[in-house]
Simulated scan of single mutants.
Amino acid sequence: MFKHILVPTDGSALSQAALEKAVLFAKESGARISFFCAAQAATMYDGLGGIFSAQTPATLRDIANDISQEILAAAEKQAQMHGVSCTTLSQIAEQPYAAIIEAATLHGCDLIFMASHGRRGLDALLLGSETQKVLTHSTIPVLVCR
């Protein structure tokens, strides 16, 4: 059925639970996994107040990249424990949902397996949902784990 699964992860507890289910799903179906971490790019005004230097964007990118690599290393270890073939991918993106869809398409994935943070009401309206955006815009099947 599915041969190559993209599993976006942000390192959160919900994302970790979905990742574990994705690994078991891949093992049972004989699929391989590409773990993907899309760190959201900081803009000039994100949490910086009045303090800003020319090095700040590069420093923030380096920190986001380091965190992404830690998250992906843990995901890779999980897959290896279950004998599931995997690769890891990361990207700094202004719109993580678009990066998830792009990664799935670019790497030939036939399923996106991701967590839903379950935001409702005002939180969902204000914060949005990367999962909802992936569901809305993806032409690749999406399996949402709650």
Rank of each mutant, 00 (worst) to 15 (best):
K3M: 10
I5S: 03
T9L: 06
D10K: 02
S12G: 05
Q16A: 12
A18W: 03
L19K: 07
K21R: 14
A22L: 04
L24E: 13
E28V: 09
R32E: 11
I33H: 04
S34I: 13
A39T: 04
A41R: 13
A42Q: 08
A42E: 08
M44C: 08
G47N: 12
G49A: 03
A54M: 12
P57C: 06
A58L: 12
T59E: 15
S68I: 00
Q69T: 08
I71F: 01
L72D: 01
L72N: 02
A73R: 07
E76A: 13
E76H: 09
H82F: 10
G83Y: 10
S85M: 14
S85E: 15
C86W: 09
T88Y: 05
A93S: 09
E94D: 13
I100T: 00
A103L: 03
A103K: 02
A104S: 09
L106E: 14
L106Q: 15
L106F: 12
H107I: 07
C109M: 08
I112N: 05
I112S: 04
M114V: 02
S116P: 10
R120D: 14
A124V: 02
A124H: 13
L125V: 11
G128Q: 01
S129T: 00
S129G: 01
K133H: 14
T136Q: 15
T139K: 15
P141W: 05
C145D: 14
C145Q: 12
